[in-house]
Design a protein around this nucleic acid. Structure first.
Length: 595
RNA sequence: GGGGACGUAGUGAAGUGGUCUAACACGUCUGCCUGUCACGCAGAAGAUCGCGGGUUCAAGUCCCGUCGUCCCCGCCA
């Protein structure tokens, strides 16, 4: 019943058939999108990667072929031979790229049949994501899904071209490498020939690209898979792809300039958008103060404003107490938010609590005065001062955060983005890029009671802060920079340490003694001792960039075979158990606690 | 580790303790149809309401547990 292709060679993709080849005989191959049987005439829409094409089976032209078309069903794989004709004028389909023409079929071969698909292979079909992922090969047949991967290909291709043009060499770094206990959890791979020992899958090729700089390769770039065994989010997958690069004999601005050129090219070629030659910059401190995080969404204002001075003597208990404990009071003025319902405000308070606040004070400014739980505790002078500081007017709502500096920043930062969404301040198609610079070198890890690297331990401190590396590590700033797009960190990098003495000092500040440093990173320290050039680089999240350019809500939409939130794959059912024999070969025995 | 939402034919989804013997739409199957294109018309099949336990005269509906999916916090150098 099935036929082969022998003697037929595809002449055109479906999407290529148009008015320029009227009258020509074409051979097309693809999947049945839809069959419309009018008893006499039969229409079959054939689909391939390039689009849809209407084919016509007319019993008067070819009775046998027409008869054959009756047994065809959705998603059958066909080879069709026929003649391209212009459609009658009132039969043109403007929704189809090929809607001006149709192909009258004289030969039909069923290359393969298909079971009824679990969901309709159409853009408008609304399907549960788990079902889509289980049948991802069907999901990927849908044009909207496919388009994300065409876009992804374009981004990857432009990336390679751009960096190749700029003299970067593409070098592959190992996937089986050494576990580095700093940072994220590693995915481990047991070694059979070295029992009891493990490789780690790289969280990034960081150390290898630095070694390539020591080697004198000067400029390196790689589109590379990285792995982190941490809990997932919509914008976080356990394996993801980085555009990883490194340059020698550069300082921060050299790297930034190179990357600005790259991002400008992406937006120009893919989005047809002209970005400014330089992107705005914020220091980490500015960003934390004004936006509550280190990845500010600049598509809207709603800045966080310091109110500690203005409310220094406030009667309100929450304000007085947090100031007394060394915390702060900050506020956001949400223009026009007085239209929020009581439920909306209650939901915001609940949201604030869910992200770590003890509560969220708000005040509505109406023509009848200030309304809200805290309004009566504020004097007229305080109201005036608050209104002036926030430029608040009638119709606005002010949200107050009073707690430690960290909690206030984090909570108001999240309130800021939620309020912006609810007020409709986020416009589709806007792209706001910003560099965040001058990150702190270290942050105090209260749990481990030690200083930890904010970026990674190979990041160079700023020259002027070298002196306080030991005395005041919390104040040391790093030569590190993140690129933020619409509130998403899409890339980050730094100038690295190239001097062994500085690297040793940083390890010391991190509480890593010489022996431990030698054990974990000895090969890097050795390399730095053999003439490492000043160098720095960056890594971009390719998946995230594609996600944002595609306007997709999740990384899963731009990864061909992504994992679920529990890091499983509905298609392959990975991860899975293995045979006892496989474990024995590796010298492993399971010891799983049942809870 | 924690908070929240969801789970009903192949798919989407209605349902708020009592004709639920489970609506509707798409898909599937059968028949009819020569200009449709998310074709149309007539008919049919298809659901132990995620799983387990409980409350109740009565559970898709309420409660507890469990599994799965999603969103968020922690975590992600």
């Amino acid at each position: 019943m099935l036929e082969n292709m022998t003697g037929l060679k595809r002449t055109h993709y479906c999407g290529e058939v148009d008015e320029t080849i009227l009258g020509q005989e074409v051979v097309i191959m693809g999947w049945v999108q839809h069959r419309r049987d009018h008893g006499g005439l039969v229409f079959i829409d054939l689909r391939d990667r390039t689009g849809l094409l209407q084919t016509v089976f007319n019993p008067q032209e070819d009775e046998a072929t027409h008869l054959k078309s009756h047994d065809v069903r959705s998603e059958f794989v066909l080879a069709l031979r026929g003649t391209v004709r212009r459609r009658p004028e009132d039969m043109v389909n403007p929704n189809l790229k090929t809607g001006q023409v149709e192909v009258f079929i004289r030969e039909l071969r069923v290359l393969n049949r298909a079971q009824t698909p679990p969901f309709q292979v159409e853009d408008h079909a609304d399907v549960n994501e788990n079902v889509r992922l289980k049948y991802r090969y069907l999901d990927l047949r849908r044009p909207k899904v496919l388009n994300n991967f065409i876009l992804r290909h374009q981004v990857a291709s432009l990336t390679r071209n751009y960096f190749a043009d700029k003299g970067f060499l593409e070098v592959e770094t190992p996937v089986l490498t050494k576990s580095t206990p700093e940072g994220a959890r590693d995915y481990l791979v047991p070694s059979r020939v070295n029992q009891g020992q493990f490789y780690a899958l790289p969280q990034s090729p960081q150390l290898f690209k630095q070694l390539l700089m020591v080697a004198g390769l000067d400029r390196y770039c790689q589109i590379v898979k990285c792995f982190r065994d941490e809990d997932l989010r919509a914008d976080r997958q356990p394996e993801f792809t980085q555009v990883d690069l490194e340059m020698s004999f550069v300082e921060q601005d050299d790297v930034i300039e190179m990357l600005e050129g790259y991002i400008r090219l992406l937006f120009k070629d893919i989005m047809n958008l002209e970005l400014p030659p330089h992107f705005p910059r914020l220091t980490y401190d500015q960003s934390m103060r004004r936006y509550g995080n280190d990845r500010p969404d600049l598509r809207y204002d709603l800045e966080i404003v310091e109110l500690s001075d203005v409310l220094a003597h406030s009667e309100a208990k929450v304000f007085a107490e947090s100031l007394a404990r060394g915390g702060c009071i900050r506020g956001i003025c949400a223009p026009g938010a007085a239209s929020f319902s009581r439920k909306q405000l209650d939901d915001l308070v609940a949201f604030a609590i869910s992200v770590g606040a003890k509560g969220l004070a708000w005040i509505k400014i109406t023509d009848e005065g200030w309304q809200g739980p805290l309004a009566k505790f504020l004097t007229d002078e305080e109201k005036a001062a608050v209104a002036k500081t926030l430029a608040a007017k009638i119709g606005d709502v002010i949200f107050f955060g009073a707690d430690t500096v960290e909690v206030v920043a984090s909570v108001l930062g999240q309130i800021r983005s939620r309020v912006a969404q609810e007020l409709g301040l986020v416009q589709e198609g806007q792209f706001r890029l910003v560099w965040v610079t001058d990150f702190p070198m270290f942050e105090y890890d209260a749990e481990g009671k030690r200083w930890a690297a904010v970026h990674h331990p190979f990041t160079s401190p700023r020259d002027e802060d070298l002196d306080i590396l030991e005395s005041d590590p919390g104040r040391v700033r790093a030569k590190a920079y993140d690129l933020v797009l619409n509130g998403n960190e899409i890339g980050g990098g730094s100038i690295r340490i190239h001097r062994p003495d500085v690297q040793a000092k940083v390890f010391k500040a991190l509480g890593i003694d010489e022996e431990e440093a030698q054990l974990k990173f000895g090969f890097l320290l050795d390399a730095l001792g053999y003439g490492a050039p000043p160098h720095g680089g960056c890594a971009f999240g390719l998946d995230r960039i594609v996600m944002l350019l595609a306007g997709a809500p999740s990384l899963r939409d731009v990864i061909a075979f992504p994992k679920t939130q529990k890091a499983t794959c509905p298609l392959t059912d990975a991860p899975g158990t293995v045979d006892l024999r496989q474990l024995m070969e590796l010298g492993l025995r399971l010891d799983i606690k049942k809870s």
